[in-house]
């Protein structure tokens, strides 16, 4: 474990806590893409198939459970919670994400570490996570003004993978024969998708103005 990866995991956890705070405090999920939340639930369930077979550490198992439980809880809230579900931007959250799932799985069948169920699903989860934010970014562009907690949620979610890139660079430089091509290339693509959001987020922070993404 190195400082970059710890910072990445803590930033990821923070993004989830901010999202839970927004939904709990405002009893609203306006501005949040349910499709992105569902994609993340799929990402975690596909990535952590080894949850009960490979024990890495208490920290690793604990965080996997947190990620799976929180993503499923958020999807449940947005679908079934009597108050929260009413604020879902159904008519704005229309990204046809089935293509993202299909393309990620097709790519995982072609490019993976080993052709085993666990490795193919792991690669699938890596590719799917790289594009999982797209429905959310599209929703932000359509929904005009973005409330602070939603903006912070997306910011931390994008920042965590940037820390992971620093972690892979650090490990590549300090560990012999360390390679993470699948996660590394996907992580760069994933972080690049946030580039314009980071730009407008920085502008809104510098000008102390409302975060607004151009349509």
């Amino acid at each position: 474990m190195n400082i970059f990866r710890l910072a990445g995991d803590m930033t990821h956890l923070l993004s989830i806590l901010v999202l839970l705070l927004k939904i709990y405090a405002t009893k609203s999920c306006s501005g949040i893409s349910r499709k992105t939340q569902e994609l993340y639930a799929i990402v975690f369930m596909a990535r952590y198939l080894d949850l009960f077979t490979d024990f890495i550490s208490v920290y690793n198992t604990f965080m996997k459970l947190i990620f799976i439980a929180s993503s499923l809880a958020i999807v449940w809230c947005m679908r079934f919670h009597p108050v929260v579900r009413r604020s879902y931007d159904r008519e704005l959250d229309t990204f046809r994400y089935f293509f993202l799932v299909g393309a990620s799985f097709a790519l995982a069948l072609v490019w993976h570490d080993k052709f085993t169920l666990q490795e193919v699903f792991w690669a699938f989860s890596i590719y799917l996570e790289a594009v999982a934010i797209l429905p959310q970014l599209v929703l932000l562009q359509r929904s005009g003004n973005v409330d602070n907690l939603t903006g912070q949620y997306v910011f931390f979610l994008g920042a965590y993978r940037a820390f992971y890139i620093l972690n892979w660079i650090y490990r590549y430089m300090t560990e012999p024969r360390f390679t993470r091509w699948i996660a590394g290339i996907s992580g760069v693509v994933q972080t690049a998708l946030y580039a314009d959001f980071f730009y407008y987020y920085f502008i809104s922070w510098k000008n102390n103005s409302k975060l607004k993404l151009p349509a």
Binding site: I56, D113, W122, I126
Partner: peptide, 10 residues
Amino acid sequence: TEQPEGHDEL
């Protein structure tokens, strides 16, 4: 041991 890619990370 050659750890398969990525399985010690979240």
